[in-house]
Design a protein around this nucleic acid. Structure first.
Lengths: 147, 147
DNA sequence: CTACCTGCAAACGGTTTGCATTGCC
DNA sequence: GGCAATGCAAACCGTTTGCAGGTAG
């Protein structure tokens, strides 16, 4: 649970404008949080995020910030069925996750044909007007755990 | 939160054998729980289940029973993103749910092409051996909430 | 008779909230 | 200077656990 060195350079300014554009103030804590999210290649738990951020933001405020980020669309909440929430940086693409139920390894994959499936679902039920969101995760065993 | 009258008749015997076949003892509480699940057309929360069952099983044991049912494959855990678990009777089909984010109405739909998508995902990652499970739920607005 | 099942009550852990203070803009 | 963001501590709430007594097979 080491505290990351202060990220710096070009990235910092970029992250600052991400925050400002989303209507937030640019504070050390939120900047660090956003940097942490952005640099990760998988969804992170609040616990991990808080520990990486160290003293720049306490856990309660990590929750508050992440919730705000998600509402503003700059982060996404992901449910990996671990009993606690995970968040990831909201890059534009519609990707999903495959999770190893034994070691918790996570990888992305693309190609959930969401539009078409949503269409199908809407036709079937007749009681829904539109689909705004969806969850789709796969659970299985990674190569090393499968042997 | 009224307590349902005792279900009876043909169904009861059938449920008893479902329990026994799954390796459980057939007790009033579990029988009532299973009946409740079976008769519902949507996933139910533990809170609702416990209240419908009344004094035949307290909440802690509803949790224990549902967990056992899920492991035995006679019930399924469903995540509707309501902050608490839901369970449904495990009929054979692979169906999913569309949930109204405003009023929590839930309906089933079929046609998530799981096999094909799992295949795609496995090809993409190369680090996973197999997919054993998946989640797929749609969130949107029902006709009455959309207006 | 002996596991399995149950009720009750307490513990648990992730998340939320209240409130006084701080520090962006 | 005003309002968003923060730290700290306490509340919250769904869920799990321990244990002594009950009951199905």
């Amino acid at each position: 649970m080491s505290v990351k060195p202060q990220y710096q350079g070009a990235d910092r300014k970029q992250l600052q404008s991400v925050l400002r554009d989303a209507g937030f103030r640019s504070t050390e804590g939120r900047l660090a949080l956003l940097a942490e999210l952005k640099q990760s290649n998988k969804p992170l738990s609040v616990e991990i995020l808080a520990s990486h951020i160290g003293s720049r933001l306490d856990e309660a405020n990590v929750y508050r910030a992440l919730e705000s980020f998600a509402q503003a669309g700059i982060a996404r909440r992901v449910d990996l069925q671990h009993g606690h929430v995970h968040y990831e940086f909201a890059h534009g693409d519609d990707h999903h996750h495959i999770v190893c139920t034994s070691c918790d390894k996570v990888e992305d994959f693309a190609g959930c044909e969401y539009d078409r499936l949503a269409e199908t679902a809407l036709k079937q039920t007749r009681n829904f007007a539109k689909v705004t969101n969806h969850s789709f995760e796969l659970f299985g065993l990674c190569n090393s755990c499968a042997t």
